[in-house]
Design a protein around this nucleic acid. Structure first.
Lengths: 211, 211, 211, 211
DNA sequence: CATGAATGAGCATTCATTCAT
DNA sequence: AATGAATGAATGCTCATTCAT
């Protein structure tokens, strides 16, 4: 049975958790603005003084880690959604992109951090056997293997097509970030799917598929 | 008329310029190994002591800038090569990629630095109106405009196809960097062209109608 | 006349005083475990939160001071006990030691703090004219002057013999602290008296003339 | 053969070594004045700024360690000197004390640090199996075992007499430190030997040894 | 031209202390 | 009376930069 004490404890815990997330989001803004953001920067962005951050995180490392986990979880969750076999590859691809891009639209700064880390070749953490890029690459290739037929990929290795997908995603994202008043990135999903499926040459309208 | 003095001056200047490039290349190696490379790291890699670097560059900032310019010039030079109109878009594209990838194969570390900066959204210098990414994007889109017909791009905006090209280039490069014993990246040019032109679906072999 | 109010006030005051001592003893344990003990450490040892300590002491300094006073009072009280003239110097000495060592046995941690401060030459407080060591030295020398005859001290200055006493006490104590499963230190009193009185050579058994 | 280069290198190395020792001695003064001396304090005492210290020592830990080693080496060297069997215990003891006290007279501050650490029960370094005190105790007891006969110690355990010696040494030293214009401590050697050998009661002049 | 020596500015982290509740 | 939350003031340490030699 819940006593008053329990309820109060619960409320406190919830508030603390909220603060933790607030700080992580502030950290995302700070890192998006400056890759070398200091604890000072993060604190300023969060509206706290530096020592206060240490009441919620043991170290800067833990903040960065927390931010990574947050981003990773959101990003990876798109891959775990159901993609019914009844859908075509194009439809599945559009669905995957829309799921991901919705996150991006909502958490612009957070994803900026993720993308930056994607390009960090030397994994900062020596104990990490694989770089963030490699992990993502494996995950995308796996998704390809599960949700496509060899024909979908024109007989190419899923790994290669995964690189194509990641590349398009990344450049569209960075370009979008550079815009002053960015429109919804989700609206670009159709174009991205088109480019991913048919490349620069575009769909072959002049062949038997056209009416 | 050239006096002896002039000649000596000239020789000196040339030697100094050589040293400058040596240092920049050392910096590239240092940065490739560790994003946070210090002046100490760069000096060690260059075989000098730290204060010596200041005889050739006014600041660390100037070294980074110099490295950027070096890399940029090399990268951009591929766009200034001749691409005869007699070539198809596919051929021009393969040529462009091969030119660029040769540089990459030769200067692995230097390009690692470039790619990292590509993802740095916030332009390090506030006085820079455009980020490195945007500059590259403009340059690629321009090339597209000059060397393609609307049909080549399936009627799409050159800017969008430029993003596709940059994305493929970047992910293939980073993936290649992550390999332990990387093969020549130039050998992947055909695959990249294929992906760029026809996308994930592959060249339109027309499954239903082929014999 | 005592009103109900007075009685309640009194009870409160007594309880507060008890808590003060509890905290001081917790502080002793904390300091014994770690010279650099923080307020956090002390609070944890006392079973309070940090701000609660400030309800009983104005500052950490006041806690340390209070701990010192507590220890000092206990230690010095041994000197104020009666030492009848009918006793020999040896007997008085053994009595003094036993009184002191009983405290030590009982309050191991508290005395560890005292001993450490004994060696702190620079008096923590600049306004303290005399170091803790000097105060103790004076007190011991006084005891000597009162309770010994010049013959007892072999004609030496009481100050010098006081140093001998303090030295033996300190080293035996520290050695005892370093033991894993320390026996009662009081049991060592006889040996200490023996060493104090006769030195390394031992009691003058008069080897040549003994039967 | 020594080239000019070698000579210069040698001179540099020697100067650096001198600076290292200078810093260690400054650290000794700083620690003597305040047990919690900071790098700031040490630097001020040494006449450097803090970062300069890091050119000579990798960490504060290394400075403390260096200081300990310095002190230890000097202190322990007295035990390694020759003590001919022809000498009486009293003579050996006086020799041992004079050797040690000469160091003390010369390096007052340095020894203050040593003595303070002697009383630090909890060895700061968790990897140190034995405290500084225990190590010294073992060394002194060993010396006793080698240079005394059981008769010299009145049949007592060398460990116990070692504690006596250490205690006298420590209290005489601390007392000497507390003096404003301290005379040579070496001059007190005879008194210390006397106290060590015969205790508070003093030599037994009234027995057969007296004329 | 090159370097040993030195430092100002800044960084992550800790800690004693305060205050609203 | 007790505490969660917050902070100013250090602390050990790093790094880009300068300068006398």
């Amino acid at each position: 049975m819940n006593t008053l004490f329990d309820i109060q404890e619960n409320r406190k815990a919830r508030k603390a958790e909220r603060t933790r997330v607030d700080i992580l989001e502030a950290a995302a803004r700070a890192f998006a603005r400056n890759t070398r953001a200091t604890m000072q920067d993060i604190a300023a962005e969060a509206g706290y003084t530096v020592p206060s951050l240490y009441a919620y995180f043991r170290s800067k490392e833990e903040i960065t880690q927390g931010l990574n986990d947050l981003v990773n979880r959101e990003m990876m969750s798109a891959f775990d959604l159901p993609y019914p076999d009844s859908l075509t590859f194009a439809q599945k691809l559009e669905l995957l992109l829309r799921h991901s891009l919705e996150f991006v639209d909502r958490r612009r700064d957070t994803f900026a951090v993720l993308m930056q880390q994607m390009s960090d070749i030397a994994s900062e953490e020596a104990d990490q056997p694989l770089s963030r890029f490699s992990l993502a690459h494996l995950r995308v290739a796996d998704w390809m293997r599960v949700h496509t037929t060899p024909a979908d990929l024109g007989g190419r290795a899923p790994e290669d097509v995964a690189l194509l997908l990641m590349g398009v995603f990344q450049t569209f994202f960075i370009h979008w970030l550079s815009l002053d008043r960015p429109p919804s990135l989700t609206d670009r999903a159709s174009l991205m799917v088109d480019l991913l499926l048919h490349g620069a040459s575009g769909p072959h309208r002049d062949f038997h598929h056209s009416p």
